[in-house]
Simulated scan of single mutants.
Amino acid sequence: MREGRIIKGIGGFYYVISNDEIIECRARGLFREQNLKPLVGDRVKIRMDSDSGTGYVEEILERKSELLRPPVANVDQAIIVLSTRDPEPNLWLVDKMVIMAEEQDLSIVFCINKSDVDFERACDLKAMYEDAGFVSILTSTKSGDGVDLLKEHLKGHTSVFAGASGSGKSSLLNAIDPSLKLQTSQISRKTARGRHTTRHVELLSLGNDSYVLDTPGFSSLSLDFVEKPEDLRDYYREFGKFAADCRFLSCLHDSEPGCGVKEAVSKRLIGEDRYKNYLAILDELRKRRKY
């Protein structure tokens, strides 16, 4: 059998790259019985049909990581893209993306896009995420600022571009490699949101063992993998050094007295937006547990 990697899946067909050849494959029915579905990014073993030149996915090799939204495997880095305006950044959704990436132990790079539209706000967002412990880059496909730096961060990685529709993921990828020719669109005037231009998940090669996954934008994200509300605090990396000052070891940094994290927020040592999002997600998890 040949080994390869799934680069695209559409309508029950999987396109596997093996020795620089792209082979159209079907998946074995056995996977359905095992409740296992091949994912883009999977490294697989395939059996060829010599008559048709197509193949069958016979085995899915062990995954190093697996994301549910977008459904991809073997990613090691998340590029979280948010725009300064047009559309307005949904920081609550961004924090959920961060939690998802942290859960899979991915490297995280923030891309503050459309920095030319509102440079002051772009700098504020960059500072907030850098203070939280993340790499953060200002980019603009209009001016070209930051595109080369972003490209450097992609080298040697399989990166997933995640962000709301209209934040500029496809435009950034086109700027990094014009040969990709990914479809882009304008922001809807009626809704002030981006239209979905990416219709499926696809693994794109940038050469030199560097891959990116362009994915559909999305407006919601489930955190089903966070089992208990008290687990949430561990996904906010900037809380750690201040939590040591909390009066109670079980402190959830919410309504408890003597909370080191709340004190840090009041001193602007922790971003207020990040903390507000934490409280909103904490409330969401508490309500889920009631049911």
Rank of each mutant, 00 (worst) to 15 (best):
R2K: 15
E3I: 01
G9M: 04
G9C: 07
G9W: 03
I10C: 01
Y14I: 12
Y14A: 03
I17V: 15
G29C: 08
G29L: 09
G29H: 11
F31S: 05
R32V: 15
N35H: 08
P38V: 07
G41D: 03
D42W: 11
R43G: 01
V44S: 05
D51M: 15
D51I: 15
T54Y: 08
T54A: 09
G55M: 07
E58R: 02
I60F: 10
L61F: 13
S65G: 13
E66M: 14
R69S: 06
A73L: 07
N74K: 11
V75D: 08
A78M: 11
I79S: 05
I80A: 04
V81N: 11
S83L: 07
S83F: 05
S83V: 04
T84A: 05
R85H: 13
R85M: 15
D86S: 15
P87H: 00
M97P: 00
M97W: 07
M97A: 02
V98R: 02
I99E: 05
A101V: 03
E103T: 12
E103S: 14
S107A: 14
F110C: 05
F110I: 08
C111H: 00
N113M: 06
K114P: 13
D118P: 04
F119L: 14
F119A: 11
D124W: 09
E130I: 05
E130Q: 14
E130G: 08
F134Q: 05
F134D: 02
L138D: 03
K142Y: 07
L150M: 09
K151S: 14
L154Q: 00
K155L: 15
G156T: 01
G156V: 01
H157D: 06
T158E: 08
T158H: 12
A162K: 01
A164V: 14
G168E: 08
K169C: 11
S170M: 06
S171W: 04
L173P: 00
N174F: 12
A175S: 06
I176K: 03
T184G: 03
S185W: 00
S188I: 04
R189Y: 09
K190F: 03
K190A: 10
T191Y: 13
A192L: 15
R193G: 09
H196V: 11
H196D: 07
E202T: 14
L204N: 02
L204R: 08
L206R: 09
N208I: 06
S210Q: 04
S210E: 02
T215A: 10
T215K: 02
T215W: 01
P216D: 07
F218T: 02
S219K: 12
L223G: 10
F225V: 04
F225E: 05
F225T: 02
F225C: 05
K228Q: 10
D231S: 00
Y236M: 08
F239R: 06
G240C: 04
A243G: 04
R247N: 02
L249G: 02
C251R: 08
E256D: 07
G260N: 03
V261Q: 11
V261W: 12
E263S: 12
E263F: 13
K267A: 07
L269A: 09
I270V: 12
G271V: 05
E272D: 10
N277R: 14
D283I: 09
L285C: 01
K287C: 00
R288Y: 06
R289M: 09
K290V: 12
